[in-house]
Design a binder for these strands. Sequence first.
DNA 1: GCCAACATACCGACTGGTTGGTATCAATAT
DNA 2: ATATTGATACCAACCAGTCGGTATGTTGGC
Lengths: 213, 213
Amino acid sequence: MNNPTSQTAPTHPSARDKLLAAGFAVIRSKGYSGTSVDELCAAAGVTKGAFFHHFKSKEALGVAAANYWSEFTGALFAAAPYHDHADPLDRVLGYLDFRRLLLAGELPDYTCLVGTMVQETYLTAPAIRDACHASIAGHARTLAPDIQAAMDARGMTDAGFTAESLALHTQAVLQGAFILAKAEDSVSVAIDSVDHLKRYVTLLFSQAEEKAA
Amino acid sequence: MNNPTSQTAPTHPSARDKLLAAGFAVIRSKGYSGTSVDELCAAAGVTKGAFFHHFKSKEALGVAAANYWSEFTGALFAAAPYHDHADPLDRVLGYLDFRRLLLAGELPDYTCLVGTMVQETYLTAPAIRDACHASIAGHARTLAPDIQAAMDARGMTDAGFTAESLALHTQAVLQGAFILAKAEDSVSVAIDSVDHLKRYVTLLFSQAEEKAA
DNA sequence: GCCAACATACCGACTGGTTGGTATCAATAT
DNA sequence: ATATTGATACCAACCAGTCGGTATGTTGGC
């Protein structure tokens, strides 16, 4: 009856896993403050007793959800195909194509949990803010090496920006694109913004190629 | 004793005005859902009775605050000096310089009210979402003519993007920059993103100039 | 038998919202 | 000039319901 790998197996998820999964969905729809513990429990199909057995507070669930989000997205992007390109610039552009591809389904499905949470909690819940920051910064850090390699290949030693700052800029564009998509209730504006970002990166490196030539 | 222009005079602001001003500050700090009506009243120095005299619900205050935000920022940017440049591209770049300049003080002082609110309310309070969308889209619309003029001046008839989409992209970058600044608890990452955006716009139009030459 | 994993029942504090009432005003009638 | 009217602006107290959190079970595997 019991699954020996039940800790993380989707066939027999623990109340903790169900709550974290419910957190992804509900918090992305209604925000952190707008989501009640009761609501979370109902969405997860567990009771409040289970909630407070696994999380000492609502804030603790917020932190855990942000950390789980880091794991989840980390695995998603690590398995993505854009890493296969030989040229580092192609990997960066491939990443943006992949992000564009992810803009599918309904708004709560493709928006960013930690971007949503940090907006509300940056002053009131520093622990959540730190976990969200770690998630965003950690993801940006996976991009920086490819950007740096692309810069090095073109001798861009004095480009006026760092690989890290460009990596963070991509995240800013994506987060902002989500906000505009929510405001317009349409994904097209987000797609347009990713296209602008891709055009920026392309221009940035083609410019350097011309200069080098 | 009584001020004949008391309706809008800052020397004798009405409870409504005080509540809207308090809304700017408190909602930008704690988010919409995270802000209670009692908190708003305390910050404004009025009672709950006054609140519900002027606003039929908390949501109505959210809508009114978003609309007031549109007026407020509309006046701010209309009076900004970047409109004086003769070259439309200089006006666009001047706008970005002005936005960079506005990134001063504490986080709740320079972040965007409607960007914060729409993130939480896009599904639960359509009236607020619409007001936030009107604010963002309306502001972007003030940028589009200058962008279009800059494109026309360079014969960019087939640039692969519209002036409107670039205007919206600037707003996405700014909104995203605010999120990253909140996560990092530092404005520098937001400044970097605005710099990237300015570099993008510069590249976009210098590229077209080269092609035309 | 025991402990982790849950469920049930409940608490005080706080939530958005309502109540009845007062102070202040302009307009009008006297 | 003054009294009457009626509307607006505002207040303190209060309401029913919801909040995050707790106390006390019950259960099922080791």
